[in-house]
């Protein structure tokens, strides 16, 4: 009988629905945290936050700009800066090829974009990192664009908002990467001098040289719920101490508890909270 072909006589050959990951792009989104499946449009309208479990999906500069700038209107700054190759760094792939491949894959020039515009009618300059570009790593371009974004905020006499999302310094630019920590911090010292506000928003993940420079230097250090934030990554810490890490270690909530964040902000309320804070400083 042919109908028996359709019958499942063996158990366990089918994948449970909640574990199925391949949903057609542009239609459905499955939350990696609670496995709930929702329509992509619903997820997007909810600021890429799971309505079920509040999981904040990793998004990039395009999404943050559209969430924060009024009518998604902004003037992008230094959009055409790209990386040089002063070290001629070559592991398995020459560094310029790595950059080009990442550019082709992401449509981005490097791991940060910066723009000026209005947020609830408050003029701001925002720089936002893209984790999809070589792990959001900080090389000369990232450092230079952030430095110039801070300069732009100073020239326009407007607040500066930095959205960090990075694995740290970019190894392939070695000494140059390291000095981007110094460069960006120097510019923030100048911003201080002029009494302009700096909000540092840390998103999942923010680690390494980024944490040890501009990300931790905000007048206001804030983070998204659940974001991993640390100097050393959890794997390195675990190897160093030779023990398992306590649950929640290096989460935004952990940092808040230890006094390194001013508050944690839900992405859906981010724009209003940030602009209210800035209004209070006027």
């Amino acid at each position: 009988m042919t109908t028996s072909w359709y019958k499942r006589t063996q158990k366990g050959i089918s994948t449970p629905t909640e574990e199925k990951r391949e949903v057609p792009d542009g239609l459905w989104y499955q939350c990696p945290e609670c496995k709930k499946v929702i329509q992509t449009s619903v997820h997007m309208e909810n600021a890429y936050v799971c309505p079920e479990c509040n999981y904040h999906a990793r998004v990039g500069s395009k999404e943050y700009f559209s969430l924060l700038f009024d009518e998604n209107t902004f003037e992008e700054l230094d959009a055409n800066l790209t990386s040089g190759d002063p070290l001629e760094f070559n592991d398995s792939v020459p560094y310029p090829n790595r950059v080009k491949a990442s550019q082709a894959k992401t449509g981005l020039k490097d791991a940060v974009r910066s723009a000026a515009g209005k947020m609830n009618n408050v003029d701001v300059v925002i720089a936002c990192m893209d984790f999809t570009f070589i792990g959001g790593s900080m090389g000369s371009v990232v450092g230079e664009k952030i430095a110039r974004a801070i300069d732009a905020a100073r020239a326009r006499k407007v607040p500066f908002i930095m959205i960090s999302k990075s694995g740290g310094a970019r190894m392939m630019e070695a000494g140059y990467s390291l000095m981007q920590m110094a460069k960006t911090s120097a510019k923030l010292a100048l911003l201080d001098k002029e009494g302009l506000p700096y909000i540092s928003l840390m998103t999942d993940p923010t680690t390494g040289g980024v944490t040890a420079s501009y990300a931790m230097l905000g007048d206001f250090n804030i983070a998204e719920p659940g974001a991993l934030i640390g100097f050393a990554g959890p794997r390195v810490v675990k190897e160093t101490i030779g023990k398992d890490l306590p649950p929640g270690f290096q989460s935004a909530e952990f940092l808040l508890e230890h006094g390194f964040l001013d508050f944690i902000v839900d992405r859906r309320e981010m724009k209003d909270q940030l602009s209210s804070l800035l209004e209070l400083l006027k």
């Binding site: 010292a189 040890a212 931790m216 640390g230 100097f231 023990k243």
Partner: peptide, 24 residues
């Protein structure tokens, strides 16, 4: 810089970042 648990609890990143900025 040390990568221990307490170093993270007490803000290794913040401490280094602050020094860099203040030294300028």
């Amino acid at each position: 810089a040390y990568c221990g648990l307490e170093a993270e609890e007490r803000g290794q990143g913040e401490a280094i970042a602050r020094n860099i900025k203040e030294m300028f």
